[in-house]
Each structure stands twice: as C-alpha cells, then as structure tokens.
Design a protein around this nucleic acid. Sequence first.
DNA 1: CTGAAAGCGCTTACAG
DNA 2: CTGAAAGCGCTTACAG
Lengths: 332, 332
Amino acid sequence: MKVTLHEVAARAGVSIASVSRALNGEIASARTIELVTRAAAELGYIPDQRARSLKLGATRQLTFAVADVGNPVYVQMLRAVEDAVRESGYRVLISSTRSSVEAEIELLQSLLRRHSDGLVISPLRVTEDFLTALDRLTIPAVVIGRLPDDHPYDIVRTDSAAGVDLAIDHLIGSGRRTIGFLNGPTDTTPGSIRGQAFAAALARTELPAAEEHRATAADFTFADGLTAATELLDRAPGLDAVLAANDLLAAAVLHAAHRHGLRVPEDLAVIGMDDSELASQLMPTLTSVSLGSAERGRRAAELLLARIADPSLPAQQVIIPPELIIRDSAPS
Amino acid sequence: MKVTLHEVAARAGVSIASVSRALNGEIASARTIELVTRAAAELGYIPDQRARSLKLGATRQLTFAVADVGNPVYVQMLRAVEDAVRESGYRVLISSTRSSVEAEIELLQSLLRRHSDGLVISPLRVTEDFLTALDRLTIPAVVIGRLPDDHPYDIVRTDSAAGVDLAIDHLIGSGRRTIGFLNGPTDTTPGSIRGQAFAAALARTELPAAEEHRATAADFTFADGLTAATELLDRAPGLDAVLAANDLLAAAVLHAAHRHGLRVPEDLAVIGMDDSELASQLMPTLTSVSLGSAERGRRAAELLLARIADPSLPAQQVIIPPELIIRDSAPS
DNA sequence: CTGAAAGCGCTTACAG
DNA sequence: CTGAAAGCGCTTACAG
C-alpha cells in the first residue's frame, strides 16, 4: 500500500501543501512541522522522486559515460566523480558505451528524455555525428578529453603529449636508445594525440624513429594489445624500451616481452599511461604516466555542478598536468 | 524551447491524446499516424521519461549495486547484466557501495524513491539492517550471493565451496603439500564461505592444516592483500601453494612471493578465485576458479525482468557451478 | 477513431 | 502560517 503526500496529510490533519512545505523546510508553524514529521515517520513516507522531478524540472541524477567499464582508468575517475557529487545529493548513473560511437550517440539521445540533469562524458572518438548529438543535448555536459575549438563545452583534459615527453625523457635518461610505441586505435582522440606526440618526441632527439618501432592495437584493451605487442616485438627485436598508450596495453607488452624471452626492465623497459590501479598490480610494477584521472573526474564533476547551478557560466577548459610515476618496469 | 505533446498536437492538428496513441502504437487512423509522426519528427519531439514514468508507474531503469567498482569481477557481471537487459529497453544504473553496508542500506532507501523498477545487488555483508532494508523495498530485487533461508528473494549464486575444492584438488594433484589460504574479511559472505570451505577441504586430506597457513586481508583489495600476503609468507615459509579468495588477493600473493624470492609456480603455486580479466593480465597468468560471474549477471538480470513482468512468481534460486581455469601460476 | 478530462505525486504562487 | 488550486508532461478510461 503506497504512501503519498495525501496519506501523510490525512494522518497529520493538514493539507498536502503543508506537508510538502513542512518536509522541505519551507515556512510552516512549529506545530505543523511536529505533526507532519511524526505522521511521515510513522507511515514511512518517502517522496516520489519522479513526481518531484517532474514538478521541479530536476532529476538529481547525473550520468557519467565511459567507453569501457573494463578499463581501470575509469575506476578512479568514477570514484572521484561520485565523491565530488555526493554532498550535492546527486546520484551518479554510469553508462558504459563499449567503445562505440553509436552507443555514445544513443546515450546522448536517451538523455533528451530528461532522466538526468547533467552529463560527464569521456568520448573516445569525436565524430561529426557525436558533436551533433552533443549539441542537441538539453542538459549541461562536461567533456573529459578534447573537442574542436568551436564547441563551447566545459572541458577537462590532460596534456598527454607532455605525458609522452615525460616518458621518453625518462627512458632516454636511463640509457634507452631504441624506443618503441604501442598505440591504441589512431582514430580515437587519445590514440591520435599520443601517436603524434610520440613521433614529435623522437624527432627532437637523435634516436631512431623507424616506422616498424610502432604498432597499433585494434582497441585499448589487453587482448588487442597482446596481438599488437607480439607483432611489434617480432618485427623490432632491437627495442630496448616500449611506451604503451595505456596501462592495459603496457600489461600486454609485459606479457609479449616475457614470451620473447626479454627481461623487464633489464632488456626492455616498459612504460604505460594512466597510472591506473593495474600499474601496481602488475609484475614488475608498471612505471606509468599519471594523467590525473581522479583529478579529471573530480574537476569534471565540479564544473558540471557549477554549470547546473548557473547555466550562463562561460565554458571552461581545465588542463591537468601529467606526472611520471616511476616503478619497476622502467626504473631510474 | 521545450517540445511536449502539446506542441506536437498543435502542429499535427489533433489532440494530445491522439498524439500519445499514435506514437505508442495504440489504435489510431492511418491519417493521424501520418500527421503525428511527421509533426513529431519535425519538432524533434522526445517524450519526457519522468512524466511517462509517473503515469505508468515504471521508470525503465534498473539498478545494479556492486561493492567495489575497482574489483574486476564486477566488470563481467555488469556487462552481462547490460546485455541481458538491453533488449527490454531498460537502462542500467550502476551503484558502487564501496564495500560498506551503510552505503548499501542508503541505496536501498533511495530506491524507495522509485527511480528504479528493480535491483540486482551483490551484498558483501548480509547484516540484520541490510535484510530489514531489503524487506522494505517496494520494487523487485535479485540477490547475487547468499541470504538466510527465510528470505524469499530470487537468488543467483555460485558454489564457491565447490570452487575451493576444485582448487585444492588441482594443487594436490600437481604435487603440492603445504597449502596456504589468503582470505578476505571473514565477516563477509564470500569470506566466511570460502574460509570454511578451505578448512573443510584440508580436513578431508592428509595435508597439514595449521592456523599459520591462513591469513585474512582487511578487504578484498590488492593493497590489503599485499599486507596480508607478505605476513603470510613471512610466517609460513614452508608453503608450496596459496589459494586466494579472489583474483586481487591472488595478484598480491604473486607480488609477495616475488619479494620473498619465491618463483611462481616452481616454488609456490598460486590460485585465485573469480577468473576476472585480471587473471590473464597478470604474469605469470593466474590459474583461477571461475565462479561464472558473467553467467551470474545474466541470470540475475533475467530473473529480475521475469519478476518485474510477473511479481507473483515463486522465488527462485539459481546456482552456477564453478570451474577451474588453469593458467601458468598453478599448471597441471 | 477521436477528444475532453482525470489523474500519476509532487511543488508553489495565490488568497485568505 | 495555511489550504485550494493549478500545473509539471504524460496515459488512458470514457463518451461520442
């Protein structure tokens, strides 16, 4: 038997308007508050979110869209988002888009149904269709990543090119001379940026920058990384270091190296990117470029809350600097 | 500028009732359908989920509550739940309860606000308060795990005791004689069951079953596992195998073994439980007891959908048998 | 087949 | 301070 405002009002002997006011801290007499509070408690009244939301125009739900729940980098982001948002009484809806633009666009369309008050999205591929769908959105969105300049969204991103530089400098500094790169798909934002950054970093040095020192995995996953890493080590036996575009790909390099009889870090130094929890779980522990995933999550959530509070705010761009976390796979 | 039924009705020159019927495939003339469909398309009309939900009593949202988004076992469960539910047009809301009973109870209470039509929950600790909150729920819930017998919920669980047996038999079969156990907190359901199963399994054999061969991590995490595993190997240097209560703890054993100068599997065989994605990412790859997490997720989602469709269904209990997945950390 | 009306459960001007 | 009423955007008996 459902208990609504009416039941509480009847029990308290007041109108439903008074119940609503008393419960929401609006103006009400002490006596009303007393009666209503007791009646509500006795009946175990809980306001219906949907009705409230319909009336108020806000759902108190935020959506956080990630490309792949299996990628550990999102774990920290998600926790940070939840923490930043908890105080404000929002619930966080996680949506896993499976690295598919279609799924992302579908999500954006479903958001038009107004089940969320805001969106934090970390798109892997920024296509025209994606941008169109994003522009159609009727709720605020914060993008973790990059967007063409003419799209006025709040953006939180890292400087992964600088991150690549940190990694390369570290490898060179520790005496490595033939550095390979295992990238993810280059039609993704991170794949494209990191790939270019790697080429640029090598170009600044005297080091060999052969095409066969680079490989591209079909996706940013361990399984695809394993295939590509095996190929890479087959093809370029002279490598003494490999930078991988994320930690899952780096884990794959560790495995491929082992199969090729290479010791890490003695024969081959390996560096990942993301500094996810996986980095310390691997063996040897993984030197990784932290791209501030927790920080990005936190800042994105804050920007979103700020924009929900005041939609007229100018769009902001926050850049989180990368940091090299040195562990055993590529020591000093 | 918001477009509602009224705008579509005005443009199509019909009543809002007709718009609703035409759009929902209710009875309507071909001409009305034609007019309405076009008007809706031209205006980019998207029905408001909240209003629909309020009227219909259903939100088309399901909640999936996991203890820790950082635990890779939930990745497969989540994917399976999403897949099983996709066809039915439900959105899956992931809630991360951070291994805290309080957070779980808070979640159950928030569910009373009716933002979800159903819940799949995998509780770590089944306390009285938890059960009370579960019983108060006004929407169907499916539990992944165990519950006292007198609670008539749909349950999907594995037989982790049988899983422990598989692991022990495998270790004995491959010549191990001094088997340690790294458990998670024993006040959790899995911790308690797996701990007892380990004791029982050893009791059936001739093997030594000393108290100092067992250790308990403060939580089912890598970090807590590392502390406990290090202690265990310090205290019991004679072990030739360790079974860990999940894959994260097993990863910790791998690290602790390395620090103790033990080779895996030569000096120490290691087996995990869950057969999560982490198992093949570790090095050596981890032999692990699959507890059918994807299957549990899928079955739980199916039970939930069935119960939403027909709340009068008798409560079911589904048991997924475990399976040993042999990899390098404990080969045949 | 169609429209006017009621109602899902709330919140909030508006009178009093 | 309080209550009656309107309305958020839908769906669906009920007449016609």
